[in-house]
């Protein structure tokens, strides 16, 4: 087993863990049981309990449910945009290229959080979930992915590379999808997609945290679900006030670490040989 296989296995394991957590999430949080409050993981398996005696595994699984699919979709979208940007450099479509560059310049110039907040404000209440915000985030990440994939395709030779392969008798599908996308753009696309996946998870935690500290509903999920931001909020009390909730903070950070590990392992697994 070489290093690449190790990274693939690690990425797969982390992602499956995330999906398993999401799949096992209860629809509603369990009732308060103060007799079980602030139990450590070794006292209440597997993650311990919060200040109200609720198992932390519920927070972990419900938070995973909130982020798993939208962040994965955002990753796929960014990789797709990157692929289109790379392929665009390999065809003679100067007008489309200029238009894409122009639109990319506009989208890239907008502070992302400002756009997200405007969209969050305007979305009807019944549409409120992480999914539309994740899609918007993916669109905002697209110019970077398109630029980087385009630069890789340009270094490859762009249209000259395609002409050379055509001269060797390869078909269009094989040239564009196999030689350009799979063999050459893969590292960039996977890394960009994985980073987008990670940043959407961070975005969810940030937006939920900001709402939680103001005692408001989150823009990313319904009130019956708990986010990983709730863990950070309770853990923060340990940092700032010394309340016995340090283990909650570590669970929250550990879950964010799981997302980082998934993204990093995916990026490493797809690196060019």
């Amino acid at each position: 087993m070489n290093r690449r296989h190790l990274y693939i296995a690690l990425a797969g394991f982390c992602f499956v863990t995330l999906l398993a957590l999401a799949w096992s999430a209860p629809d509603l949080p369990s009732t308060i049981d103060r007799s079980q409050r602030s139990l450590k993981p070794w006292e209440y398996w597997p993650l311990g309990t919060d200040m109200n005696g609720r198992p932390l595994i519920e927070y972990a699984s419900q938070g995973a449910r909130v982020i798993a699919i939208p962040s994965f979709l955002a990753g796929i979208l960014v990789a797709f945009f990157g692929m289109m940007g790379g392929l665009l450099r390999c065809v003679e479509w100067p007008t489309i290229q200029t238009m894409v560059q122009f639109i990319g310049e506009i989208v890239g110039a907008l502070p992302r959080m400002v756009v997200i907040l405007v969209v969050a404000l305007l979305l009807p209440t019944e549409w409120r979930s992480l999914m539309p915000l994740a899609v918007v985030w993916a669109i905002l990440c697209a110019p970077g992915a398109i630029d980087e994939a385009g630069a890789v395709a340009a270094r490859l030779g762009g249209t000259r590379f395609v002409e050379a392969l055509k001269a060797h008798g390869f078909g269009a599908w094989r040239i564009y999808m196999h030689h350009i996308v799979v063999l050459n753009l893969r590292p960039v696309l996977v890394r960009q997609g994985a980073e987008a996946m990670m940043t959407v998870a961070f975005l969810e935690v940030a937006l939920s945290y900001l709402a939680v500290v103001e005692d408001q509903s989150s823009f990313t999920h319904s009130d019956n679900l708990r986010s990983w931001a709730d863990l950070l909020k309770e853990g923060y009390l340990w940092l700032a006030l010394g309340i016995d909730s340090g283990h909650v903070l570590f669970v929250g950070l550990g879950l964010l670490g799981l997302v980082v590990l998934t993204a990093t392992a995916l990026g490493k697994a797809a690196e060019a040989r």
Binding site: F202, A206, A229, L232, V260, T264
Partner: peptide, 8 residues
């Protein structure tokens, strides 16, 4: 350092 999220 690059993977440290701003919220944390």
């Amino acid at each position: 350092l690059s993977v440290l999220p701003v919220v944390v």
